[in-house]
């Protein structure tokens, strides 16, 4: 794999993730969040999961980011006042990161295969979804319907 491309994508993703997590201006942070997902989709492309990368861009940059921006606009009066920032979270996050990296570096049984993209075709994904994973697919369909109805009920105005 192209190491330069890999390093560029890694730095891009992490910089926008930090911007999304710490920027005090809500709209800027929400847009950084959307850009971060483009970086994650680029990782999926590098790892040979093109379909998942495209789904990630469609769902997150296309739908979830727009939902978040609309929610910020709908709660705008509140968005202008200052919200606090708890520094305890920074300590916990750094502790978790150090612990995870320590665990990853100490694990000897991780496969150390050379990088080799095994591409997966959309046909394979479709076949698997319709044969082996058909029941999970149905469950996700029911879950999405329930979530859609639930979200509508939650935001519905009471009839006068």
């Amino acid at each position: 794999m192209n190491s330069v491309a890999f390093a560029v994508i890694a730095i891009f993703t992490l910089v926008f993730a930090v911007a999304a997590a710490t920027n005090p201006r809500l709209m800027h942070a929400a847009l950084s969040f959307a850009v971060m997902f483009v970086g994650i989709a680029a990782f999926f492309f590098l790892l040979g999961a093109e379909f998942v990368g495209l789904v990630q861009i469609f769902v997150y940059v296309g739908a979830v980011a727009v939902l978040i921006v609309f929610t910020i606009l709908l709660t705008r009066r509140d968005a202008e006042e200052r919200h606090g920032f708890k520094w305890g979270g920074v300590v916990v996050a750094i502790g978790v990161f150090v612990g995870l990296v320590w665990a990853i570096l100490k694990t000897n049984s991780l496969p150390t295969l050379p990088y080799l993209v095994k591409a997966v075709t959309v046909k394979e994904i479709g076949t698997t979804l319709m044969t082996q994973d058909v029941w999970p697919l149905m469950c996700v369909g029911v879950l999405l319907t329930a979530a859609l109805i639930g979200a509508l009920v939650l935001v519905m105005e009471d009839e006068p």
Binding site: T13, L14, A17, V18, A20, A21, T22, I40, H83, G84, F85, K86, W87, G88, G89, V90, V92, A93, I94, V96, F97, L100
Partner: peptide, 13 residues
């Protein structure tokens, strides 16, 4: 990425 997400979830109000 996970730690940055955790930071956002714990620190932002």
């Amino acid at each position: 990425l996970f730690s940055i997400g955790l930071l956002a979830a714990l620190s932002r109000r």
